[in-house]
């Protein structure tokens, strides 16, 4: 693989929790490269370290050892402030629990990272409208998160993750709280984004979700135990393939 085309690259990555005898290696000496446009799924049992890996890739946590590079820039040595700036421009997060600001409307939630990135209010609004249309929520733009279903909330979260055209979208169990229909909606959006070259790292428990990826890494006890290239899946086959067609 051409190193220069890797959006995400980690080397010798270690993350330890606790001290003394209670010390646990959540991520244990991991190497990884994710090229541009790839959809990578990471699977493994609960507590295997896959969410910690995602947090390390996005600069939400600092590694105990090793290096994390994002688009050729080493990020594990950056200050908290610099990491925040990097996240707002280069990383889009999608969480299992959505993590929307409850007192802001769907559109305002989507605008949030754009405003943080210094865009004008008008630019942020235009971009949010575009993305909400893309995820099929134009008519819900003014609704508060509490007025949306779980699937709709996650679609808002996806739109928010994309508002600054990030280099990579990091999704932590994005369908973990969704029913089948809502899961299919979210995966269709992911598939559309992949088709235009968006890079993804998705942590999931769900094999059906993992099956939509280009590449699947299995984790156990903080280590990669398998790294498999999957056959590409077209949007039209998505539902059939993962058994979610409504």
């Amino acid at each position: 693989m051409n190193v220069s085309s890797a959006v995400v690259r980690v080397h010798g990555l270690v993350k330890q929790h606790g001290r003394g005898q209670g010390r646990v290696r959540a991520v244990d000496d991991v190497d990884l490269e994710v090229p541009e446009g790839q959809m990578l799924a990471v699977m493994g049992p609960s507590g295997c370290g896959k969410s910690t890996l995602l947090h390390l890739l996005g600069g939400l946590e600092r590694p105990s050892d090793g290096e994390v590079w994002l688009a050729g820039q080493r990020i594990d040595t950056l200050s908290e402030r610099a990491l925040a700036r990097l996240r707002r421009r280069s990383v889009g997060f999608v969480f299992q629990a959505f993590h929307l600001v409850e007192e802001l409307s769907a559109a305002e939630n989507v605008e949030l990272p754009a405003l943080l990135a210094g865009r004008s209010r008008r630019q942020a609004r235009r971009r949010a409208s575009l993305l909400l249309e893309r995820v099929g929520l134009t008519d819900r733009a003014r609704h508060l998160p509490s007025q949306l279903s779980g699937g709709q909330r996650q679609r808002v979260a996806v739109a928010r993750a994309l508002v600054n055209d990030p280099l990579v979208v990091l999704a932590d169990e994005p369908t973990g709280n969704l029913d089948s229909a809502a899961t299919l909606d979210v995966l269709r959006i992911f598939e559309e984004l992949r088709s235009v070259g968006q890079t993804f790292v998705i942590v999931t428990h769900d094999e059906r979700v993992a099956a939509t990826a280009d590449r699947l890494i299995s984790m156990r006890d903080g280590m990669f135990v398998d790294d498999t290239r999957l056959a590409g899946t077209g949007t039209g086959r998505l539902g059939d393939l993962i058994g979610l067609e409504d």
């Binding site: 996005g58 939400l60 908290e80 402030r81 925040a84 700036r85 990097l86 996240r87 707002r88 421009r89 997060f93 969480f95 993590h99 929307l100 600001v101 949030l112 990272p113 943080l116 990135a117 928010r160 600054n164």
Partner: peptide, 15 residues
């Protein structure tokens, strides 16, 4: 929690 969410989407501690 709200601060964590804002940090995750790129807000600095100062903001």
């Amino acid at each position: 929690r709200r601060a964590g969410l804002l940090k995750a989407v790129g807000a600095t501690p100062g903001l």
